[in-house]
Simulated scan of single mutants.
Amino acid sequence: MRQEKLRPTLPAVIALGSNLGDREAILRAAVAEIGRTDGIIVDAVSSLYETDALKPEGIDLSAPAYLNAVLLVRSALQPHALLEALHVVEQAHDRVRVERWGDRTLDLDIITFAGLEQHDDTLTLPHPRAHERAFVLAPWHEIQPNAELPGHGPITPLLAATYESPRLYARWER
């Protein structure tokens, strides 16, 4: 029997962040690895944006700044399988989960997945804080300005309502 190849058709938005190590190289490598994952096609990549580290207590200027980006992908994987695939990429870059919102070599989050709204012990869709995070909204707006965040509406006014101001760090060169 012939095995069918996975056909990526479900749209998803993935946020990337790094504030340890060679941040730019890590993010660029992660994008390439995601693009090589069976069942995922990367359709668009934002520029890289730099933001101050955000901790549960607020902005932490003593911590290394983050580089952030957003990907638009199509996935044949269901949400939990996509999250597992992203965790494999994080682990390849020595991601350590010690403290909540701690410094990290690589953080990959599913922001939206095919317009689904769901919540369980492992995954909440859309991402529960995306609507208030300029470091997600600014790069997303760059590559999909008419996007909507399920349950929150168009991202343009959401971005305008944030207090952060991500700094353009580098344009993505193909």
Rank of each mutant, 00 (worst) to 15 (best):
D120T: 09
L108P: 00
P126Y: 02
T122W: 11
T124C: 13
H152S: 03
I155Q: 06
W101T: 02
L158V: 01
A69W: 03
H127W: 13
T156P: 12
A76D: 03
R74T: 09
F113V: 09
H93N: 04
H93S: 00
L82N: 12
Q78W: 15
A130T: 05
H119P: 07
D107E: 07
T105K: 05
H87R: 13
E99V: 14
A69V: 06
H80T: 02
L83F: 14
L77A: 01
Y66Q: 07
D120A: 15
G153K: 00
E84D: 14
A85V: 04
L77P: 03
P150C: 08
T124S: 15
L77D: 02
E117V: 14
H152I: 07
Q144K: 05
P126W: 06
H87G: 02
D121I: 12
L67Y: 06
T105C: 04
N146K: 14
V136S: 00
L67P: 01
D121T: 13
R104N: 00
H131Q: 09
V89D: 03
A85W: 02
P157S: 04
P128L: 06
V96H: 12
L158W: 00
P157E: 03
G102C: 10
L149C: 04
L106M: 04
T105L: 06
L125I: 06
G115V: 04
P150G: 07
H119Y: 13
P157M: 10
G151S: 03
